[in-house]
Design a protein around this nucleic acid. Sequence first.
RNA 1: UGGGGUGUCGCCAAGUGGCAAGGCACCGGGUUUUGAUCCCGGCAUUCGCAGGUUCGAAUCCUGCCACCCCAGCCA
Length: 558
Amino acid sequence: MEQQGTNNFLRTIIADDLENGRVSDIVTRFPPEPNGYLHIGHAKSISVNFGLAEEFGGRCNLRFDDTNPEKESQEFIDSIQEDVRWLGFAWDGEVRFASSYFQQLYDWAVYLVEQGLAYVDDLSPEEAREYRGTLTEPGKNSPYRDRSVEENITLLTFMKAGEFEEGSRVLRAKIDMASPNMNLRDPILYRIRKVAHHQTGTDWVIYPTYDFAHGQEDAIEGITHSICTLEFEDHRPLYDWFIENLPVHSRPRQYEFGRLNTSYTVTSKRKLKQLVDDAVVSGWDDPRMPTIAGMRRRGFTPTALRHFCDMVGTTRSDGVVDVAMLEHAIRDDLNANAPRGMCVLNPLKVVLTDFAEDQLEVVTAPAHPSREDLGERQLPVTRELYIDADDFRESANKKYKRLVLGKRVRLRNAYVIEADEVIKNAQGEVIEVHAHTVPNTIGNDPEDGVKPKGVIQWVSASKGRQATVRLYDRLFDHEAPDKGDHDFMAHINPESLTVIQQAWIEPALAQAAPEDNFQFEREGYFVADRFDHSSEAPVFNKTIGLRDTWAQRGEGAS
RNA sequence: UGGGGUGUCGCCAAGUGGCAAGGCACCGGGUUUUGAUCCCGGCAUUCGCAGGUUCGAAUCCUGCCACCCCAGCCA
């Protein structure tokens, strides 16, 4: 068992349980409700549950907690499975569904009624709320609380048979209406919902609540460590109450950890949906979304996401992780593994006056500065090239390490060139630079000893290809967009997306397959769009920029 | 105001009575055909606060304070 990241309380608990024989193998589960897309927070939960099972040689189930058909759908079941697989995890056996345990759950509900531990309540939702009391005042017993077992059985049978209207009755556990823990004030076990279920169709008109279902599902599957987030801590006494009062065959235990929050991000389902509905983003998989599908399309990798989850650790405290840590994880993986390429985002034509019109020279460049196994690529050098307009100035101070009129610069992987002349349009803007190559400078420094001050990327104007490049930035320009009294929509970063229709890419990049990651040198990491990219019409998404200490010092203005 | 939690560097986080790991961020310096990477160095006399126990405490005790969660027939 290999341990990633630092030690944490869950590892300690599991190691102890294994050592003292409480369990012989650990079984965990990732239990999403199929009512939305998975996001970065779920990635953490997936990483914790599957990761722990992997680490301790156990198993992890994927179980859809589908107890509320009104909000769920097959679309989400499909996307969730795809996301978990993409992250690189394999669940044990078949996918599980809480709905496949509905009959067992119902039988256990009958058992509870027979034991005098559950009753059918006729209170309306409004009345029930009044009877429940408040945080500081105890609740009071429902007048229907002391019905006979026989009457309760009859009523429950009728509920199941669809004899009652939605909301008219519920099945409740008989625990303690005066408990300081609200969850123990006779919690609801079943409610009437006359809607079809995506898995069970119209078989049922009553559906179990989360509380009545979750622990029993865990017991049925032999889950040893049921790991959830902190807000369920108050439910644990109820979780245990069911396990103790029902004839279940295994004893799962619940443990809670703190949810993952990252700065500059919102993850509430409601807010993500609003971003989609208001067309702030193009969909749930928009590269700016913190959804797994969005991050995937952005060019994040499973390796980076898993590393990030290990980096932040698993604790019982809730904090906000700096997105810079996520960005570091992405850069770390991509720097090591992404092939390099050259792309000019803001083209400025350079004419090499010592090259003939039809002259073509091909230089070979490594795909990666230190990964020989990634191979090489061919770069055509022609008379007309494009460089980035930001990489040329007519005059500049000594700190500027790019091309300046009358000075030299290294074309990455190719010649050192010297700028001789600028051509301007009627508005006085530079539209072309004439330059010449310094002899014998491919792989060598200039023989006259005058070294260029910098290196810039370039693309052949005649052999290069045009591409669409989408530059993404943080969706929010506030570190805590949904905190405080303001509306999170007010903190949308107006420059979160810039589309460049006519960027120039070196020929080899057009051959990229969708989802191939690259580093466009001096610009950042980019990915060929999963859906829109093709060799004929290349489309790249910016994943994350290179670390830029130049811009950080406020000296990067061009 | 009832119950349940959490408080260690700007952020995340080890540490479980023996004298404050690590990562991110940041700040130097070196290497560099990416102002990237990489390398070297710096960055908590102090662990929410106040008392107490002890030769010795972030770790034990007492009392405060701050923040988070709970009053869905959501999960």
